[in-house]
């Protein structure tokens, strides 16, 4: 109830809508998206129908989201984030194992394979995390979500919002790593599955918007 209300507010303010329905199959999902704003996971979370919203957990940076009481409360109580350390990772931390365990429990994940927010909306190369996760938990559907304009609502390093309309486009699931496919090829394929959802013409997509 409280979450539905918050999700409704986010949808009204960011104009975020589900542009296409996420695939109806009842496997667990990993929503992977381009990353340019703190709003990104909130928007995906808000755009989902409430049945799916109840089981989704964003993967977020531990150093940022465990600082301060408000952020901690948001991360733990509201969004139930899976917090992953970004610096000084010890083998015992096993971030991929942690995420796979969440999928194992029947929850879905929101994952940003670029690792960090892009300053200008350009979709960078994917880090290896998505590949490792797909190998570790091959039964989850990998659903690309292309986020538009969120870097204009709240870009990196800004605290004031500009209420332009954002958009979250959910694509058909991307097939996991194929036999004999190299890590680089898989990551490149996953990235182009994401970029295909952009409404910009393919030749400009993934590059910063020009005036």
């Amino acid at each position: 109830m409280k979450r539905d209300l918050l999700a409704w507010c986010v949808r009204v303010f960011t104009g975020a809508r589900l542009s296409s329905d996420p695939d109806g199959k009842d496997t667990t999902r990993v929503y992977y998206a381009n990353h340019s704003s703190h709003l990104d996971f909130v928007v995906i979370w808000a755009a989902l129908p409430s049945r799916l919203r109840e089981r989704v957990r964003p993967v977020a940076a531990a150093d940022y989201w465990s600082r301060g009481a408000v952020r901690r409360w948001l991360a733990q109580r509201v969004f139930r984030a899976v917090l992953i350390p970004r610096e000084r990772i010890k083998p015992s931390d096993d971030p991929i194992g942690k995420m796979a365990a969440v999928l194992e429990q029947g929850n879905d994940l929101i994952f940003f394979p670029e690792g960090a927010r892009s300053p200008d909306g350009h979709v960078g190369d994917f880090h290896s995390g998505l590949h490792a996760l797909a190998l570790k938990h091959p039964h989850s559907a990998l659903i690309p979500v292309y986020l538009e304009n969120l870097n204009r609502i709240l870009p990196k390093g800004e605290f004031m919002l500009v209420p332009v309309m954002g958009n979250a486009t959910f694509g058909p699931p991307c097939e996991g790593p194929r036999d004999g496919e190299s890590r680089r090829d898989f990551l490149r394929r996953a990235r182009s599955a994401l970029l295909e959802l952009s409404s910009h013409p393919p030749e400009t997509c993934g590059t910063p918007p020009h005036l």
Partner: peptide, 27 residues
């Protein structure tokens, strides 16, 4: 006015440098 301006700004590409100006305009 708010909704109309929002539609207009959404479709007019504005670079990062205009972000704060736009916050002032809207709010």
């Amino acid at each position: 006015s708010f909704l109309a301006l929002r539609e207009y700004i959404t479709l007019s590409p504005t670079p990062r440098a205009d972000h704060r100006t736009l916050s002032w305009v809207f709010f």
